[in-house]
Design a protein around this nucleic acid. Structure first.
Length: 492
RNA sequence: GCGGGCGUAGCUCAGUGGUAGAGCGUCACGUUGCCAACGUGAAUGUCGUGAGUUCAAAUCUCAUCGCCCGCUCCA
């Protein structure tokens, strides 16, 4: 089997077949933004559907949620994003390498630069940074840096029509906080008991320093996140559960085993809230065949709910500060925080606690890209190259294509009727144009698992040809069994 | 942000100062009748964008936008 090695081939296929286009292309394009075309939106929706089905619908212990992208500014104060979602960066005047100021080493220091949190941008800017003794990690030149400049990672926007009294808001950098903010609501209304999870799929926005590789890292992207709440002490167990469950989800939907792996985070690269974190990585065909993150599974402990309890206690300060979160400090944690408003009462054990949270957080766009790349194949058929996408049926944009062999003898009418029947249950596509072989190959490149052809024999014995995408094999099926058999093959 | 490469039809690309092209794809008609077939015909271009040089710019110069590769960055 021919192996795809270049991202360019994927980009070109995506354009040619209407999976993914550059955003605002007629105006020269907008960096890092992409649009999903007719086939692409089906694929992406199917990825989301498959995730939702697996994480929410087939389970008894997970419910769904769909939160707004704009949230109360205090959410980001409490979560730590407002303070920490920014970097100070300085640039080496010699080689133009940009480095986080807090990562720069003294020229005499022998230890490696430590991984540190993002810094409070106002505080960091207020202090003076003496970079004269710092070494450029690239070229080794000492003390030749520009003034540190802030790098804001959250998108800002204004809320309120009147510019004078509008409020600066942030587009959410993750969907997770909407879930934490609704923990109480779901608990009170959904008749759930710990352990249980709340899932959400939606857009998030991060002003990344650098975007990368087609739709792999974009500033606007879609996440599928689950916050699974469990009793402290059972968190390691649930962490393992979700780690396995999420890994298998990719395999079950067609990702080849050799292209998927786990990568444990080292202690020093863990986020401020996490006790443990493992990435599910896919071997993408960009870079030097680099493994890249598809999804992170993290143990967020009780950090977020405790922070929001502090946030709730800070609300008065927020009003007093006239809505400027940079001017306020988060209230201290209550002594008996575990009995606070976001605590959980365990009726069996008769005790209150703040649950721990296991968070599988997947990137929908990069997953869709991985499914695309992994499904792509080229093979030699009678001296010609056949391009195809071996999508799992659940992810395939079109499930079945229906063709009349020729445009006469009533074949188009029969084919149309069959196609319309199919459409009630799944996405089907009718095509009567051109040679039959060409129509098959077109569907191969769209990843359609099955093609049905109405031919001369159909008129005689009411059977049709079923053609398999992967093997190109053909079998005859009686018309009256067609829908049942197809639905069984597709699993839908 | 740096360095390198690139940008001409939907795709792949040719075109080094003088009338914008090819292959594939798309569409129509005919033919064929199960794997990118054949014939005839057709449509499709801000040559990424903007300035400059020139009698004349896809071609030379500058700026800018976008993409890819490598750095850097990635809570």
């Amino acid at each position: 089997m021919a192996k795809l090695t270049k991202l360019d081939d994927i980009v070109s296929l995506c354009k040619r077949r209407g999976f993914i286009f550059q955003s605002s292309e007629i105006y020269g394009g907008l960096a890092s933004c992409y649009d999903y075309g007719p086939l692409g939106v089906e694929l992406k929706n199917n990825v989301k559907k498959a995730w939702w089905k697996n994480v929410v619908q087939i389970r008894d212990d997970v419910v769904g949620l769909d939160c707004s992208i704009l949230m109360h500014p205090m959410v980001w104060k409490a979560s730590g994003h407002a303070d920490k979602f920014a970097d100070l960066i300085a640039e080496c005047k010699k080689c133009n390498t940009r480095t986080r100021v807090d990562h720069l080493k003294d020229k005499d220091a022998d230890q490696a630069a430590e991984h540190t949190e993002h810094v409070d941008i106002d505080a960091a800017q207020a202090q003076s940074h003496d970079l004269t003794g710092k070494v450029c990690p690239k070229c080794g030149v000492v003390g030749q840096f520009t003034e540190p400049m802030p790098f804001k990672l959250m998108f800002e926007t204004q809320m309120g029509a009147n510019i004078d009294d509008s409020m600066t808001m942030h587009l959410r950098p993750e969907t997770a906080q909407g879930i934490f903010a609704n923990f109480r609501n779901v608990l009170d209304t959904a008749r759930v008991k710990i352990p249980f999870g709340i899932a959400q799929i939606g857009k998030s926005f991060r002003n990344e320093v650098t975007t990368k590789a087609f739709i792999f890292r974009t500033r606007e992207f879609e996440q599928a996140e689950l916050e699974f709440f469990c009793e402290p002490g059972t968190d390691d167990e649930w962490f393992e559960h979700w780690k396995e469950a999420r890994f298998n989800w990719y395999l079950d939907h067609g990702i080849k085993k050799e292209n998927l792996r786990f990568r444990e985070h080292d202690a020093d690269e863990l986020a401020h809230y996490a006790k443990g974190c493992v990435d599910v990585e896919y071997k993408f065909p960009f870079g030097s065949g680099d493994w890249q993150e598809l999804e992170g599974v993290a143990n967020r402990t009780d950090f977020d709910l405790r922070q929001h309890q502090r946030g709730m206690r800070t609300l008065n300060k927020w009003y007093e500060s006239d809505g400027d979160i940079s001017k306020i400090e988060l209230a201290d944690e209550a002594e008996e925080y575990f009995k606070g408003p976001l605590s959980y009462f365990d009726d069996q054990q008769k005790r209150r606690y703040i649950p721990y949270v296991i968070e599988p957080s997947a990137g929908i766009d990069r997953s869709a890209l991985a499914f695309l790349v992994d499904a792509y194949d080229e093979e030699e058929v009678r001296g010609e190259t056949r391009n195809l996408l071996r999508f799992h049926p659940a992810l395939a944009p079109v499930k079945v294509a229906v063709f009349p062999l020729v445009k006469k003898e009533g074949m188009p009418e029969i084919a149309r009727n069959i196609c319309n029947d199919f459409k009630k249950y799944f996405n089907a596509f009718y095509d009567q144009k051109g040679a039959i072989g060409r129509r098959y190959r077109r569907q191969d490149e769209a990843g359609t698992p099955y093609c049905i052809t109405i031919d001369g024999q159909t008129l005689e014995d009411k059977t049709v040809t079923l053609r398999d995408r992967d093997s190109m094999e053909q079998t005859r099926i009686p018309t009256d069994q067609l829908l049942t058999q197809i639905r069984e093959k597709l699993g839908m």
